[in-house]
Nucleic acid binder design. Structure first.
Lengths: 194, 194
DNA sequence: AAAAGAAGTGAAACTAGATTAACTTTATTT
DNA sequence: AAATAAAGTTAATCTAGTTTCACTTCTTTT
Protein backbone atom coordinates (compact mmCIF):
# COMPACT_ATOMS: atom_id res chain seq x y z
CA UNK A 1 0.00 0.00 0.00
CA UNK A 2 2.96 2.35 0.41
CA UNK A 3 2.84 3.33 -3.25
CA UNK A 4 -0.76 4.45 -2.95
CA UNK A 5 0.05 7.31 -0.60
CA UNK A 6 1.05 9.66 -3.42
CA UNK A 7 -2.28 9.02 -5.16
CA UNK A 8 -4.18 9.56 -1.91
CA UNK A 9 -2.43 12.90 -1.42
CA UNK A 10 -3.14 13.77 -5.04
CA UNK A 11 -6.89 13.24 -4.88
CA UNK A 12 -7.15 14.69 -1.37
CA UNK A 13 -5.86 18.00 -2.66
CA UNK A 14 -8.78 18.19 -5.09
CA UNK A 15 -11.77 16.70 -3.21
CA UNK A 16 -12.19 15.83 0.46
CA UNK A 17 -12.79 12.15 1.08
CA UNK A 18 -13.30 10.11 4.23
CA UNK A 19 -11.29 6.98 5.02
CA UNK A 20 -13.79 4.60 3.38
CA UNK A 21 -13.92 6.66 0.22
CA UNK A 22 -10.14 6.77 0.01
CA UNK A 23 -10.05 3.00 0.31
CA UNK A 24 -12.73 2.57 -2.33
CA UNK A 25 -10.85 4.87 -4.68
CA UNK A 26 -7.37 3.40 -4.36
CA UNK A 27 -8.64 -0.18 -4.43
CA UNK A 28 -9.61 0.38 -8.08
CA UNK A 29 -5.97 0.90 -9.03
CA UNK A 30 -3.42 -1.78 -9.64
CA UNK A 31 0.28 -1.19 -9.46
CA UNK A 32 2.35 -1.90 -12.56
CA UNK A 33 6.05 -1.72 -13.19
CA UNK A 34 7.08 -0.57 -16.62
CA UNK A 35 10.55 -0.98 -18.06
CA UNK A 36 12.28 1.77 -20.02
CA UNK A 37 11.21 1.70 -23.70
CA UNK A 38 8.10 -0.35 -22.92
CA UNK A 39 4.82 0.88 -24.44
CA UNK A 40 1.72 1.24 -22.28
CA UNK A 41 -0.46 2.55 -25.13
CA UNK A 42 -0.21 1.72 -28.84
CA UNK A 43 -2.16 2.80 -31.94
CA UNK A 44 -5.06 0.56 -32.96
CA UNK A 45 -5.49 -0.82 -29.45
CA UNK A 46 -8.09 0.74 -27.18
CA UNK A 47 -6.52 2.54 -24.21
CA UNK A 48 -7.78 0.39 -21.37
CA UNK A 49 -6.19 2.36 -18.54
CA UNK A 50 -5.74 5.80 -17.11
CA UNK A 51 -2.27 5.78 -15.51
CA UNK A 52 -1.05 7.71 -12.49
CA UNK A 53 2.75 7.94 -12.38
CA UNK A 54 4.34 7.05 -9.03
CA UNK A 55 7.90 6.93 -10.29
CA UNK A 56 9.49 7.50 -13.69
CA UNK A 57 8.69 9.37 -16.89
CA UNK A 58 6.60 8.81 -20.01
CA UNK A 59 6.18 10.33 -23.42
CA UNK A 60 3.01 10.31 -25.55
CA UNK A 61 3.56 10.80 -29.27
CA UNK A 62 1.97 10.36 -32.67
CA UNK A 63 3.70 9.25 -35.85
CA UNK A 64 2.82 11.37 -38.91
CA UNK A 65 2.62 10.34 -42.55
CA UNK A 66 6.32 10.43 -43.33
CA UNK A 67 7.25 8.75 -40.07
CA UNK A 68 8.17 11.83 -38.02
CA UNK A 69 7.33 11.52 -34.34
CA UNK A 70 5.48 14.39 -32.65
CA UNK A 71 5.47 14.45 -28.88
CA UNK A 72 2.07 15.28 -27.41
CA UNK A 73 2.85 15.08 -23.72
CA UNK A 74 5.55 14.40 -21.16
CA UNK A 75 4.50 13.00 -17.84
CA UNK A 76 6.51 12.47 -14.66
CA UNK A 77 5.68 11.70 -11.02
CA UNK A 78 2.29 12.80 -9.68
CA UNK A 79 0.54 13.21 -13.00
CA UNK A 80 -1.66 11.20 -15.36
CA UNK A 81 -1.16 9.72 -18.77
CA UNK A 82 -3.22 7.87 -21.37
CA UNK A 83 -4.50 8.46 -24.89
CA UNK A 84 -7.50 10.33 -23.54
CA UNK A 85 -9.49 10.35 -26.77
CA UNK A 86 -9.11 6.62 -26.94
CA UNK A 87 -9.82 6.18 -23.25
CA UNK A 88 -12.94 8.34 -22.98
CA UNK A 89 -14.55 7.11 -26.21
CA UNK A 90 -13.13 3.57 -25.85
CA UNK A 91 -12.00 3.63 -29.45
CA UNK A 92 -8.64 2.63 -30.96
CA UNK A 93 -5.75 4.84 -29.93
CA UNK A 94 -3.76 7.02 -32.31
CA UNK A 95 -0.84 7.51 -29.94
CA UNK A 96 2.09 5.68 -28.52
CA UNK A 97 2.84 6.10 -24.84
CA UNK A 98 6.33 4.88 -23.99
CA UNK A 99 8.33 4.79 -20.75
CA UNK A 100 11.40 7.03 -20.88
CA UNK A 101 12.74 5.39 -17.70
CA UNK A 102 11.98 2.35 -15.59
CA UNK A 103 8.70 3.44 -14.02
CA UNK A 104 5.92 2.54 -11.63
CA UNK A 105 2.29 3.46 -12.37
CA UNK A 106 -1.11 2.96 -10.79
CA UNK A 107 -3.66 1.93 -13.41
CA UNK A 108 -7.42 2.22 -13.36
CA UNK A 109 -9.37 0.51 -16.12
CA UNK A 110 -12.25 2.17 -17.97
CA UNK A 111 -15.08 0.16 -16.36
CA UNK A 112 -13.77 0.68 -12.84
CA UNK A 113 -13.49 4.39 -13.45
CA UNK A 114 -17.06 4.51 -14.78
CA UNK A 115 -18.30 2.70 -11.69
CA UNK A 116 -16.33 4.96 -9.36
CA UNK A 117 -17.75 8.08 -10.99
CA UNK A 118 -21.29 6.70 -10.90
CA UNK A 119 -21.05 5.52 -7.30
CA UNK A 120 -19.98 8.75 -5.67
CA UNK A 121 -20.52 12.36 -6.60
CA UNK A 122 -17.08 13.31 -5.23
CA UNK A 123 -15.27 10.95 -7.59
CA UNK A 124 -17.19 12.47 -10.48
CA UNK A 125 -16.12 15.91 -9.27
CA UNK A 126 -12.49 14.82 -9.13
CA UNK A 127 -12.47 13.64 -12.74
CA UNK A 128 -14.36 16.75 -13.84
CA UNK A 129 -11.73 18.99 -12.24
CA UNK A 130 -8.95 16.97 -13.88
CA UNK A 131 -10.54 17.26 -17.31
CA UNK A 132 -11.14 21.01 -16.94
CA UNK A 133 -7.58 21.71 -15.89
CA UNK A 134 -6.16 19.49 -18.60
CA UNK A 135 -8.18 21.48 -21.09
CA UNK A 136 -6.86 24.77 -19.73
CA UNK A 137 -3.32 23.43 -19.90
CA UNK A 138 -3.46 22.15 -23.45
CA UNK A 139 -5.14 25.35 -24.61
CA UNK A 140 -2.28 27.35 -23.16
CA UNK A 141 0.10 25.22 -25.21
CA UNK A 142 -1.96 25.66 -28.39
CA UNK A 143 -1.85 29.44 -27.88
CA UNK A 144 1.89 29.29 -27.33
CA UNK A 145 2.32 27.35 -30.59
CA UNK A 146 0.17 29.85 -32.50
CA UNK A 147 1.75 33.01 -31.10
CA UNK A 148 5.41 32.28 -30.39
CA UNK A 149 8.55 31.56 -32.37
CA UNK A 150 10.49 28.32 -31.96
CA UNK A 151 13.14 30.14 -29.97
CA UNK A 152 10.60 31.64 -27.58
CA UNK A 153 8.93 28.27 -27.03
CA UNK A 154 12.27 26.65 -26.31
CA UNK A 155 13.45 29.35 -23.89
CA UNK A 156 10.14 29.40 -22.04
CA UNK A 157 10.02 25.64 -21.71
CA UNK A 158 13.52 25.60 -20.23
CA UNK A 159 12.53 28.31 -17.75
CA UNK A 160 9.17 26.83 -16.79
CA UNK A 161 10.12 23.15 -16.72
CA UNK A 162 13.90 22.95 -16.24
CA UNK A 163 13.69 19.51 -14.61
CA UNK A 164 11.78 18.02 -17.53
CA UNK A 165 14.00 19.77 -20.09
CA UNK A 166 17.01 18.00 -18.58
CA UNK A 167 15.30 14.67 -18.07
CA UNK A 168 13.93 13.87 -21.53
CA UNK A 169 15.84 13.18 -24.75
CA UNK A 170 16.35 16.24 -26.92
CA UNK A 171 14.68 14.75 -29.97
CA UNK A 172 11.57 14.27 -27.84
CA UNK A 173 11.67 17.83 -26.53
CA UNK A 174 12.24 19.28 -30.00
CA UNK A 175 9.24 17.40 -31.39
CA UNK A 176 7.15 18.54 -28.41
CA UNK A 177 8.02 22.15 -29.14
CA UNK A 178 7.35 21.77 -32.86
CA UNK A 179 10.85 22.02 -34.32
CA UNK A 180 13.64 19.75 -35.54
CA UNK A 181 16.45 18.54 -33.28
CA UNK A 182 18.95 20.29 -35.55
CA UNK A 183 17.25 23.62 -35.11
CA UNK A 184 16.95 23.18 -31.35
CA UNK A 185 20.63 22.32 -31.17
CA UNK A 186 21.43 25.51 -33.04
CA UNK A 187 19.24 27.57 -30.71
CA UNK A 188 20.87 26.07 -27.65
CA UNK A 189 24.38 26.74 -28.87
CA UNK A 190 23.95 30.20 -30.31
CA UNK A 191 22.35 31.18 -26.98
CA UNK A 192 25.07 29.68 -24.77
CA UNK A 193 27.96 31.45 -26.48
CA UNK A 194 26.53 34.95 -26.26
CA UNK B 1 -39.10 29.48 -22.62
CA UNK B 2 -39.02 28.62 -26.32
CA UNK B 3 -35.32 29.46 -26.53
CA UNK B 4 -34.50 27.00 -23.80
CA UNK B 5 -35.59 24.00 -25.83
CA UNK B 6 -32.29 23.74 -27.70
CA UNK B 7 -30.40 23.68 -24.40
CA UNK B 8 -32.77 21.07 -22.99
CA UNK B 9 -32.18 18.88 -26.05
CA UNK B 10 -28.46 19.47 -25.71
CA UNK B 11 -28.14 18.32 -22.12
CA UNK B 12 -30.68 15.51 -22.58
CA UNK B 13 -28.41 13.93 -25.18
CA UNK B 14 -25.64 13.67 -22.58
CA UNK B 15 -27.39 12.84 -19.29
CA UNK B 16 -30.98 11.76 -18.59
CA UNK B 17 -32.91 14.21 -16.47
CA UNK B 18 -36.46 14.25 -15.17
CA UNK B 19 -38.78 17.23 -15.60
CA UNK B 20 -37.81 18.87 -12.31
CA UNK B 21 -34.12 18.55 -13.01
CA UNK B 22 -34.57 20.06 -16.46
CA UNK B 23 -36.36 23.00 -14.89
CA UNK B 24 -33.69 23.42 -12.25
CA UNK B 25 -30.99 23.36 -14.91
CA UNK B 26 -32.48 25.80 -17.38
CA UNK B 27 -33.63 28.21 -14.67
CA UNK B 28 -29.95 28.96 -13.96
CA UNK B 29 -29.53 30.42 -17.44
CA UNK B 30 -30.50 33.86 -18.54
CA UNK B 31 -31.08 34.80 -22.12
CA UNK B 32 -28.95 37.57 -23.60
CA UNK B 33 -28.98 39.20 -26.99
CA UNK B 34 -25.61 40.18 -28.34
CA UNK B 35 -25.08 42.55 -31.26
CA UNK B 36 -22.55 41.89 -33.99
CA UNK B 37 -19.06 43.09 -32.91
CA UNK B 38 -20.04 43.17 -29.25
CA UNK B 39 -17.59 41.54 -26.80
CA UNK B 40 -18.85 39.07 -24.23
CA UNK B 41 -15.35 38.38 -22.79
CA UNK B 42 -12.42 40.78 -22.59
CA UNK B 43 -8.85 40.47 -21.24
CA UNK B 44 -8.31 41.53 -17.63
CA UNK B 45 -11.96 40.95 -16.72
CA UNK B 46 -12.91 37.65 -15.11
CA UNK B 47 -15.14 35.55 -17.36
CA UNK B 48 -18.33 35.52 -15.34
CA UNK B 49 -20.37 33.33 -17.69
CA UNK B 50 -20.34 30.12 -19.63
CA UNK B 51 -22.40 30.82 -22.77
CA UNK B 52 -24.57 28.44 -24.78
CA UNK B 53 -25.23 29.74 -28.29
CA UNK B 54 -28.88 29.63 -29.39
CA UNK B 55 -28.43 31.71 -32.50
CA UNK B 56 -25.43 33.38 -34.10
CA UNK B 57 -21.66 32.96 -34.16
CA UNK B 58 -18.71 33.95 -31.98
CA UNK B 59 -14.97 34.05 -32.20
CA UNK B 60 -12.50 33.74 -29.31
CA UNK B 61 -9.05 35.18 -29.94
CA UNK B 62 -5.88 36.39 -28.25
CA UNK B 63 -3.78 39.36 -29.27
CA UNK B 64 -0.03 38.65 -29.35
CA UNK B 65 2.85 41.01 -28.64
CA UNK B 66 2.96 42.78 -31.98
CA UNK B 67 -0.81 43.05 -32.15
CA UNK B 68 -1.59 40.03 -34.37
CA UNK B 69 -4.86 38.33 -33.54
CA UNK B 70 -4.91 34.54 -33.17
CA UNK B 71 -8.26 32.84 -33.27
CA UNK B 72 -8.66 30.17 -30.60
CA UNK B 73 -12.19 29.02 -31.30
CA UNK B 74 -15.24 29.55 -33.47
CA UNK B 75 -18.61 28.77 -31.97
CA UNK B 76 -22.03 28.61 -33.62
CA UNK B 77 -25.46 27.32 -32.61
CA UNK B 78 -25.63 24.49 -30.07
CA UNK B 79 -22.19 24.90 -28.60
CA UNK B 80 -20.50 26.66 -25.72
CA UNK B 81 -18.10 29.55 -25.44
CA UNK B 82 -16.14 31.35 -22.72
CA UNK B 83 -12.52 31.89 -21.76
CA UNK B 84 -12.45 28.59 -19.92
CA UNK B 85 -9.18 29.18 -18.07
CA UNK B 86 -10.58 32.42 -16.77
CA UNK B 87 -13.96 30.86 -16.01
CA UNK B 88 -12.78 27.75 -14.16
CA UNK B 89 -10.09 29.50 -12.12
CA UNK B 90 -12.09 32.77 -11.84
CA UNK B 91 -9.03 34.75 -12.83
CA UNK B 92 -8.66 37.57 -15.37
CA UNK B 93 -9.21 36.50 -18.95
CA UNK B 94 -6.55 36.60 -21.64
CA UNK B 95 -9.00 36.34 -24.53
CA UNK B 96 -11.53 38.38 -26.38
CA UNK B 97 -14.80 36.73 -27.32
CA UNK B 98 -16.67 38.74 -29.94
CA UNK B 99 -19.97 38.20 -31.74
CA UNK B 100 -19.48 37.70 -35.49
CA UNK B 101 -23.24 38.13 -36.03
CA UNK B 102 -26.23 39.36 -34.06
CA UNK B 103 -26.63 36.48 -31.62
CA UNK B 104 -28.64 35.03 -28.78
CA UNK B 105 -26.97 33.16 -25.92
CA UNK B 106 -27.99 31.51 -22.68
CA UNK B 107 -25.60 32.45 -19.88
CA UNK B 108 -24.85 30.69 -16.64
CA UNK B 109 -22.71 32.48 -14.07
CA UNK B 110 -19.89 30.80 -12.19
CA UNK B 111 -21.63 30.57 -8.80
CA UNK B 112 -24.82 29.13 -10.27
CA UNK B 113 -22.84 26.52 -12.13
CA UNK B 114 -20.94 25.58 -8.96
CA UNK B 115 -24.25 25.19 -7.11
CA UNK B 116 -25.78 23.14 -9.92
CA UNK B 117 -22.82 20.76 -9.97
CA UNK B 118 -22.83 20.42 -6.20
CA UNK B 119 -26.58 19.89 -5.97
CA UNK B 120 -26.94 17.00 -8.38
CA UNK B 121 -24.55 14.28 -9.46
CA UNK B 122 -26.00 14.31 -12.99
CA UNK B 123 -25.16 17.97 -13.54
CA UNK B 124 -21.63 17.23 -12.40
CA UNK B 125 -21.52 14.38 -14.91
CA UNK B 126 -22.71 16.65 -17.69
CA UNK B 127 -19.94 19.18 -17.11
CA UNK B 128 -17.37 16.41 -16.75
CA UNK B 129 -18.38 14.96 -20.13
CA UNK B 130 -18.21 18.42 -21.73
CA UNK B 131 -14.72 19.05 -20.34
CA UNK B 132 -13.45 15.63 -21.44
CA UNK B 133 -14.74 16.04 -24.99
CA UNK B 134 -13.45 19.58 -25.23
CA UNK B 135 -10.06 18.27 -24.23
CA UNK B 136 -10.18 15.56 -26.89
CA UNK B 137 -11.19 18.14 -29.50
CA UNK B 138 -8.48 20.67 -28.73
CA UNK B 139 -5.87 17.93 -28.58
CA UNK B 140 -6.87 16.85 -32.07
CA UNK B 141 -6.30 20.40 -33.24
CA UNK B 142 -2.92 20.61 -31.51
CA UNK B 143 -1.86 17.40 -33.28
CA UNK B 144 -3.07 18.79 -36.59
CA UNK B 145 -1.00 21.95 -36.06
CA UNK B 146 2.09 19.90 -35.19
CA UNK B 147 1.82 17.39 -38.01
CA UNK B 148 0.24 19.14 -41.00
CA UNK B 149 1.18 21.84 -43.49
CA UNK B 150 -0.82 25.05 -43.80
CA UNK B 151 -2.35 23.78 -47.03
CA UNK B 152 -3.46 20.50 -45.43
CA UNK B 153 -5.00 22.30 -42.47
CA UNK B 154 -6.88 24.64 -44.78
CA UNK B 155 -8.18 21.89 -47.05
CA UNK B 156 -9.24 19.71 -44.15
CA UNK B 157 -11.03 22.55 -42.40
CA UNK B 158 -12.98 23.35 -45.55
CA UNK B 159 -13.96 19.69 -45.90
CA UNK B 160 -14.82 19.10 -42.25
CA UNK B 161 -16.53 22.42 -41.50
CA UNK B 162 -17.71 23.88 -44.82
CA UNK B 163 -20.51 25.86 -43.15
CA UNK B 164 -18.15 27.56 -40.72
CA UNK B 165 -15.53 28.17 -43.41
CA UNK B 166 -18.13 30.13 -45.39
CA UNK B 167 -19.62 31.91 -42.41
CA UNK B 168 -16.59 33.51 -40.75
CA UNK B 169 -14.29 36.25 -42.10
CA UNK B 170 -11.22 34.94 -43.86
CA UNK B 171 -8.77 36.79 -41.63
CA UNK B 172 -10.34 34.99 -38.67
CA UNK B 173 -10.11 31.60 -40.35
CA UNK B 174 -6.49 32.17 -41.43
CA UNK B 175 -5.49 33.08 -37.89
CA UNK B 176 -7.34 30.02 -36.57
CA UNK B 177 -5.38 27.78 -38.93
CA UNK B 178 -2.08 29.46 -38.09
CA UNK B 179 -1.26 31.30 -41.32
CA UNK B 180 -1.54 34.77 -42.81
CA UNK B 181 -4.58 35.91 -44.85
CA UNK B 182 -2.27 36.49 -47.82
CA UNK B 183 -1.04 32.93 -47.77
CA UNK B 184 -4.55 31.53 -47.36
CA UNK B 185 -5.70 33.64 -50.28
CA UNK B 186 -2.88 32.20 -52.37
CA UNK B 187 -3.78 28.65 -51.34
CA UNK B 188 -7.43 29.20 -52.18
CA UNK B 189 -6.69 30.60 -55.61
CA UNK B 190 -3.94 28.26 -56.72
CA UNK B 191 -6.28 25.38 -55.80
CA UNK B 192 -9.30 26.74 -57.64
CA UNK B 193 -7.53 27.29 -60.95
CA UNK B 194 -6.00 23.83 -61.21
C1' DA C 1 -25.67 57.59 -52.67
C1' DA C 2 -21.07 59.21 -51.44
C1' DA C 3 -17.31 58.68 -48.49
C1' DA C 4 -14.54 56.11 -45.48
C1' DG C 5 -13.11 52.13 -43.58
C1' DA C 6 -12.43 47.19 -43.42
C1' DA C 7 -11.59 42.90 -45.81
C1' DG C 8 -9.55 40.42 -49.48
C1' DT C 9 -6.13 39.73 -53.56
C1' DG C 10 -1.62 39.30 -56.01
C1' DA C 11 3.10 39.63 -56.49
C1' DA C 12 8.01 40.48 -55.22
C1' DA C 13 11.39 40.15 -51.67
C1' DC C 14 12.63 37.97 -47.57
C1' DT C 15 13.41 34.71 -43.49
C1' DA C 16 12.55 31.25 -39.83
C1' DG C 17 13.01 26.94 -39.73
C1' DA C 18 13.48 22.35 -42.51
C1' DT C 19 16.36 19.26 -45.02
C1' DT C 20 20.44 16.85 -46.15
C1' DA C 21 24.60 15.11 -45.00
C1' DA C 22 29.01 14.30 -42.67
C1' DC C 23 30.77 14.00 -38.14
C1' DT C 24 31.14 13.34 -32.85
C1' DT C 25 29.58 11.78 -28.59
C1' DT C 26 26.98 8.82 -25.63
C1' DA C 27 24.44 4.41 -24.65
C1' DT C 28 23.56 -0.30 -25.36
C1' DT C 29 24.62 -4.87 -26.69
C1' DT C 30 27.74 -8.74 -27.38
C1' DA D 1 36.22 -3.88 -23.65
C1' DA D 2 34.91 -3.86 -28.52
C1' DA D 3 31.40 -3.22 -31.58
C1' DT D 4 27.21 -1.24 -32.84
C1' DA D 5 23.55 1.62 -32.59
C1' DA D 6 21.32 5.73 -31.10
C1' DA D 7 21.49 10.61 -29.95
C1' DG D 8 23.31 15.02 -30.64
C1' DT D 9 26.11 18.69 -33.38
C1' DT D 10 27.48 21.70 -37.19
C1' DA D 11 27.07 23.71 -41.52
C1' DA D 12 25.41 24.41 -46.28
C1' DT D 13 21.40 24.54 -48.98
C1' DC D 14 16.61 24.97 -49.61
C1' DT D 15 11.55 26.16 -49.07
C1' DA D 16 7.02 26.96 -46.89
C1' DG D 17 5.17 30.57 -45.32
C1' DT D 18 5.78 35.80 -43.92
C1' DT D 19 6.30 40.57 -44.92
C1' DT D 20 5.55 44.58 -47.41
C1' DC D 21 2.97 47.10 -50.44
C1' DA D 22 -0.17 48.52 -54.11
C1' DC D 23 -4.60 47.55 -55.66
C1' DT D 24 -9.64 45.97 -55.57
C1' DT D 25 -13.92 44.85 -53.55
C1' DC D 26 -17.14 44.73 -50.04
C1' DT D 27 -19.42 46.87 -45.80
C1' DT D 28 -20.62 50.42 -42.80
C1' DT D 29 -21.48 55.10 -41.70
C1' DT D 30 -23.01 59.71 -42.76
Amino acid sequence: MEHHQALIDHISKRVSLNEDEIQEFVSCFKITKVKKRQFIIQPDFVAKYRNYVIQGAFRAYVVADEGEEHTIQFVVEDWWISDYSSFIYQQPASMFVIALEDSIVLQIDYESEQKLKASNHKFETFFRIMAERSFAGIQKRLISNLTKTAEERFTEFEQNYPKIANRVPQYALASFLGMTTQYMSKLRNTRVHK
